[in-house]
Design a protein around this nucleic acid. Structure first.
Length: 350
DNA sequence: AACACGTGGAA
DNA sequence: TTTCCAAGTGT
């Protein structure tokens, strides 16, 4: 059963990216060309939010008791990192540092160390800097506005909107990769959104957002969830989709993507070397001499079982990275603040 | 605007 | 085995 929804604000214009949508002025007439099979936008709102209420995953940062800080931490950890890998690290962080002040009281290196292998450890650094900024300028609390959030290190347009919406119930236009994909298929009729966020996409997201604050929050969460678990990038589970009959992409016969995503190079990159170096520093109790990082261990011909080299270090050496690349990677880490010199060696900052 | 920036699981 | 991709941000 569906609730009576507050009528949407009268749209000043039709959805620009949907060619099937009437473009002219005149009375808004729900039921006509709202989407592929004439499903009114308000019905799409209801169906997706009802679906979300019924089948949303139980994630700890969605608990009503979760603090804004917990939500902010989750959003940063989830930037380019899957939920399943975030879960254990998020729990550890929130137990260890239940507020921004708790994290700010630690050296930045602690944040990087407990980031584990989530990837992009600079995010840990920025979360620490954000915590410090909140203590210095926001009474130790997470800012409640989009602008305040956006001013924090590591918080961009997506995260600022997401935290404002999910932590503070604000009506924000949240646009992430899941939402972009759902919008592209449901309203745009294409398999994938453009390689980069376009102004037209943002405009469409603004116009799709329900007027009601509470409904807008559930809409943002629901569309994101739909993209994450049903309208997935590779093999969408259309059978489980609450708006299948409204989908422009399905209506068009599921045309293939019209561009090829450019893969992320990895083997042999500086990123790989940086990652291997940070892994060594993360596991080290004391500063690691530069020579140990740069040089392959000398084979002393010792007997079997003499494990002198930690896993992370042997992994680094196995890369066989040219000395020049190691130097460059190290310099980059120092410049980024992910490492610092101490006692003739390198360590995490702090 | 295009790139750099980690990591590991699934296809 | 290789490629793709996951709740992006900063420069």
């Amino acid at each position: 059963m569906t609730m009576i929804q507050k009528p949407p604000r009268s749209p000043g214009s039709a959805l620009p990216a949907d060619p099937a949508r009437p473009a002219g002025p005149g009375p808004h007439s729900p039921g006509r060309h709202e989407s592929h099979a004439a499903v009114p936008l308000r019905d799409v709102h209801v169906r997706i939010t009802d679906w979300f209420a019924e089948s949303a995953r139980d994630l700890p940062w969605r608990e009503p008791s979760c603090s804004p800080w917990g939500i902010l931490v989750s959003e940063v950890m989830l930037q380019q990192t899957p939920v399943v890998r975030v879960l254990p690290v998020w729990r550890d962080w929130l137990e260890r540092w239940p507020s921004p002040a708790h994290l700010a009281a630690e050296p930045a290196g602690a944040a990087v160390r407990h980031w584990g292998r989530l990837g992009y450890p600079r995010r840990a650094l920025r979360l620490h800097a954000a915590a410090t900024a909140m203590v210095a300028g926001h009474h130790g609390e997470v800012p409640r506005t989009y602008e305040g959030l956006l001013s924090l290190p590591g918080v961009g347009t997506y995260t600022a909107a997401a935290v404002a919406a999910f932590a503070f119930g604000r009506r924000e236009t949240v646009v992430d990769t899941n939402i972009r994909r759902v919008h592209a298929r449901l309203f745009g009729g294409t398999a994938l959104p453009a390689p980069a966020l376009t102004a037209a996409e943002t405009r469409r997201a603004v116009e799709l957002l329900p007027d009601d604050d509470a409904l807008s929050v559930r809409w943002n969460a629901g569309v994101m969830e739909l993209g994450a678990v049903v309208c997935t990038a590779r093999s969408p589970l259309c059978d489980a989709c609450p708006v299948l009959d409204a989908c422009a992409w399905v209506g068009a016969g599921r045309p293939a993507p019209d561009y090829v995503p450019k893969g992320q190079a990895w083997a042999g990159t500086d990123r790989q070397v940086r990652g291997a170096i940070v892994a060594v520093l993360r596991d080290a109790d004391t500063p690691v001499p530069r020579s140990v990082l740069l040089e392959a261990p000398v084979d002393l011909g010792m007997g079997a079982g003499a494990v002198l080299v930690p896993d992370a270090l042997s992994a680094l050496h196995r890369l066989r990275a040219p000395a020049e690349q190691l130097d460059r990677a190290l310099a980059g880490l120092l410049a980024d603040g992910l490492a610092e010199e101490a006692d003739g060696g390198l360590r995490l900052p702090g």
